[in-house]
């Protein structure tokens, strides 16, 4: 089958799931929260609305091809970086460093993907920016909190730009027998991560008893995690036809993506707790900020990228 028809099948499938979810949300809303007071139901409906937006955005990006996908993730990186930098200790002495991060590092990283420069793409932020960024801040001569400030800014760039950019970078992998279909790898990654988030939430609500990380994320439970991870792994195996993997390998990839996504969520929660905020931002009603939605994708994307590259790609 051609990549277009496969993509259509995927989008139709996701759309169908969302229609069912919206219908359930609507019925639940009518029955349990007629006056909009039931927080769990309202939150669920907010989430469903945001999933619609996400699916539409991804669908549009896929229509736009490589340009569309790169643009979408560059915008996500920008919004995420804006949220992350807000919570850092960066002061006015770091102004030029921040200008460089937003208006040089971010566009360059995505331009490197556009030009398929894997060699420099992989080291640009971890090596060059890592060395150059503290120089810009140091030249201003403000030493208070210096290590904290530059470490936070580097971390922000690693998470919001470097790791996030591994999603569109999947387009550049050359996998024998999978030419022209790489966009489906992105769909696979995003679907598995998001569905795992959803299923963990659902399993947790249904049978969750034992908190898995009470300090970091009081809503996450052992039952939710195990149930969500197992069912997401099964779904990943069922989606093997989208990927260059066999069903078994697709399940293994699904499990790795799911676990990394879950742990990524914990790490990002730890940062939020440290900074005393509940959400990263206020961009998305019911979801907090962009990072709140992207955290699990961001943590699993580089691992997924490198495993695929190492075992399936030729260069």
């Amino acid at each position: 089958m051609s990549v277009q028809s496969d993509l259509l099948v995927v989008l139709a499938g996701v759309g169908g799931v969302l229609v069912v979810a919206s219908a359930i949300g609507w019925v639940l809303g009518r029955k349990l929260s007629p006056d909009g007071r039931n927080e769990a139901i309202e939150n669920l409906n907010d989430r469903i609305r945001v999933w619609w937006v996400m699916v539409l955005a991804l669908g549009l990006a896929f229509l736009g091809g490589k340009t569309g996908v790169l643009l979408l993730f560059a915008i996500c990186s920008f919004a995420a970086l804006r949220e992350f930098m807000t919570l850092t200790n960066a002061t006015r002495a770091d102004h030029w460093t921040l200008v460089g991060a937003f208006f040089v590092v971010l566009p360059v990283q995505y331009a490197l993907i556009w030009h398929q420069q894997y060699g420099i793409f992989a080291v640009f932020i971890p090596v060059y920016v890592f060395l150059l960024l503290p120089i810009v801040s140091a030249l201003r001569g403000e030493v208070r909190n210096f290590l904290v400030r530059i470490a936070e800014m580097q971390w922000a760039l690693m998470i919001c730009v470097y790791c996030a950019s591994h999603v569109p970078a999947l387009l550049n992998l050359r996998i024998p027998g999978y030419e022209g279909r790489n966009v489906l790898l992105i769909a696979f990654l995003v679907i598995v991560v998001q569905i795992s988030d959803v299923l963990q939430y659902v399993w947790g609500k249904l049978i969750g008893r034992h908190k898995i990380a009470p300090v970091l994320s009081p809503s996450k439970t052992v039952e939710g995690f195990v149930g969500g991870a197992l069912s997401a792994t099964l779904i990943a195996a069922g989606l093997w036809w989208m990927t260059p993997f066999s069903p078994g390998h697709a399940a293994l990839m699904g499990a790795i993506i799911t676990v990394m996504g879950f742990l990524g969520g914990l790490v990002m929660s730890a940062i939020k707790r440290d900074r005393g905020v509940k959400d990263w931002g206020h961009a998305i009603a019911g979801h907090g900020g962009f990072i709140d939605r992207l955290d699990s994708v961001v943590f699993s994307a580089p691992i997924f990228f490198h495993l695929t590259r190492y075992f399936w790609a030729t260069g």
């Binding site: 804006r82 949220e83 807000t86 102004h95 921040l98 931002g281």
Partner: peptide, 10 residues
């Protein structure tokens, strides 16, 4: 103060 390029922050 003194900057002319705004940095995106919330």
């Amino acid at each position: 103060k003194g900057a002319f390029i705004p940095v995106p922050l919330m």
